[in-house]
Amino acid sequence: MARAKIIEIKDNMSTKDRIILCASEAGGTAILLFLGCMGCVNTLSAGGVVPHEQLSFTFGLAVMVAIQVFGHISGAHINPVVTVAAATLGNIPLLQVPIYFVGQFLGALLGYGLLWIATPDIHLGNAIISGVKQPGVCSPSFNPNISPGEACFVEFILSLILVLFCCGVWDSRNSDKHDSVPLRFGLAVAVLAMAGVSKK
């Protein structure tokens, strides 16, 4: 029988440990953003349309890489909703939540900055724009055939499924099944992206 954890407020980490935690989360988020968006830029640069399968698997595999690299340090939440779920379940102290949020914010900026540097300029008519400014690159939008309320509902359900997936992985009854966690998370994100991708 699994026992509920007590939600802790403080931890016994040093300042150095907290910096490492923040840096780990920043690194994981940067990997997700850079690899996920980079997988779209090359196709769009060639004048093609990114198939939703490619988009979904690129982001799923980017999550897999981020978890494999940083999961043993910070858990590689790379998503604020995962951090909130971890704190709610007592997996991390509440004091660490802002540390995770700051890391995720900095990682998003770092990943996008690296993407900006690495992407080629695109010639559109007489204008030259950066590859990351192309329509559809790292700028998700909801399907125009559904209302904003329906889009929010879909996002809520997909986020809920992600959190439930995390809870299943974190459950102590699954502690002997962690050998393929990065791959499982990557495939979970891929299927969520496939289900939620806008098909215009």
Rank of each mutant, 00 (worst) to 15 (best):
M1L: 10
A2M: 12
A2Y: 10
R3Q: 14
A4M: 13
K5Q: 13
I6V: 13
M13G: 00
S14M: 03
D17C: 00
L21K: 08
C22T: 09
C22E: 01
G27P: 02
G27I: 04
A30V: 03
L32K: 05
L35C: 14
G36P: 03
C40K: 06
V41T: 03
L44V: 11
L44C: 05
G47Q: 10
L55R: 09
S56V: 00
F57H: 06
F57D: 09
G60W: 00
G60C: 07
L61E: 01
A62M: 05
V65W: 00
V65I: 15
V65L: 09
A66V: 05
I67Y: 06
F70H: 09
F70E: 05
F70M: 08
F70C: 11
H72A: 11
S74T: 07
A76L: 01
H77K: 08
H77M: 06
H77S: 03
H77D: 00
I78G: 01
I78Y: 04
N79E: 11
T83C: 07
V84R: 03
V84A: 13
A86R: 00
L89F: 10
L89S: 09
G90K: 10
G90S: 07
G90V: 07
P93G: 08
Q96F: 01
Q96L: 15
Y100L: 05
F101H: 00
V102Y: 00
G107C: 04
G107Y: 01
A108E: 07
L110F: 08
W116M: 10
W116F: 14
I117R: 01
T119W: 01
P120Q: 13
P120L: 03
P120I: 08
D121L: 08
H123K: 15
I128E: 12
S130A: 14
V132A: 08
K133Y: 14
P135L: 11
P135I: 11
G136S: 09
P140L: 03
F142E: 06
N143R: 09
N145P: 00
E150H: 14
E150N: 12
A151C: 06
F153E: 00
F153C: 14
F156R: 08
V163G: 07
C167R: 12
S172K: 13
S175N: 13
S175F: 01
S175Y: 06
D179V: 05
D179M: 04
P182I: 05
L183G: 02
L183M: 14
F185H: 04
A190N: 08
L192V: 04
L192M: 15
A193I: 02
A195C: 13
A195E: 06
G196A: 07
V197N: 09
V197M: 04
V197R: 03
K199T: 12
K199Y: 13
K199C: 04
